[in-house]
């Protein structure tokens, strides 16, 4: 009962305060137009008549994430990476991925029904995730979104079967770490790819450059044979997808196996 009264007080407060605020609608209420910076992004995200500054991707958010503000995203990915590394550092010696005793696929995990349903839906979900990831420069979605959708599969397999089910099939944290590092190195090298191309042909090019810019004419192609790939965006999405899917899997494997054997520290 106490909770209900507290809640009622809070909700009525909100409703009341809003009445007051409506009289003084200020900067924080969305208006009819967007800001000029947003207008720039919307105007140039794909614009054949503005070739000096365009990304050639109809998806403005992915364009901002990987091109206009690509540096942010590189380091955002590194934050996730460093958090995983910090987690691995904390769990070092606390978990082991070798089987202790016997592991029976029948008795561990949830019931057969759930297992079978998971088995059937897994390829479908991976296809959906890959579609979200690989169409990131065309429709909402992108590397992180696709990778996270794909990562639901290892997570659900871990929960529905057992962590050892994956390990018995070779999905260990070490392998996933390699996969993740490969994805991240891919992102890193794509981010300086244009620079390196420029270096090779003796032209100036920026780090994170995608399309040619005034004063830096090196750039990656926007489409291949009519299929839009938006230069670096496609590669970024691909590598990010791999890295994120592997990263989520590592996180769950370590967390679930922590405290389960291992040398116990030091």
């Amino acid at each position: 009962m106490r909770r209900i009264t507290e809640l009622a007080v809070i909700i009525s407060l909100i409703l009341g305060v809003s009445v007051l605020l409506v009289l003084a609608a200020s900067i924080l209420i969305p208006g009819v137009e967007v800001r000029q910076l947003a207008f720039f992004y919307l105007y140039t995200t794909i614009n054949p008549w503005f070739q000096n500054y365009t990304v050639n991707s109809p998806e403005a958010v992915t364009a901002i994430v990987w091109d206009y503000r690509g540096l942010d995203t590189l380091f955002e990915t590194s934050v996730f990476y460093l958090a995983l590394i910090a987690g691995l550092a904390l769990a070092r010696g606390l978990f082991s991925e070798t089987l202790q005793g016997s592991f029976n696929e029948k008795t561990s995990g949830l019931s057969t029904i759930v297992k079978t349903v998971t088995r059937v839906t897994a390829p479908m979900i991976i296809a959906v995730g890959a579609s979200i990831g690989l169409h990131g420069h065309l429709t909402p979605g992108g590397g992180f979104q696709g990778g996270a959708t794909i990562a639901v599969i290892p997570l659900v397999f871990i929960v529905v079967y057992s962590a050892f089910f994956l390990i018995a099939r070779g999905v260990t944290s070490n392998k996933m770490l390699v996969l993740r590092s490969i994805g991240l190195l891919g992102i890193g090298f794509i981010s300086i790819a244009t620079f390196l191309i420029g270096l090779a042909i003796g032209r100036f090019a920026y780090v994170f450059q995608n399309m040619p810019k005034p004063g830096a004419i090196v750039g990656l192609p926007a489409d291949i044979n009519g299929a839009l790939i938006s230069g670096t965006l496609w590669f970024f999405n691909l590598f990010e997808m791999i890295a994120v899917a592997a990263g989520f899997t590592i996180a769950f494997i370590i967390l679930l196996l922590a405290g389960r054997g291992g040398s116990g520290g030091r």
Binding site: Q145, A148, T149, A251
Partner: peptide, 23 residues
């Protein structure tokens, strides 16, 4: 903001409750 929905759902409905329940 469909992009944010796609990012946010796995993170906030899938992963964080998962790791918190493990914890």
């Amino acid at each position: 903001a469909p992009d944010i929905v796609l990012v946010y759902l796995p993170v906030a409905v899938g992963l964080i409750p998962g790791v918190l329940i493990v914890l």
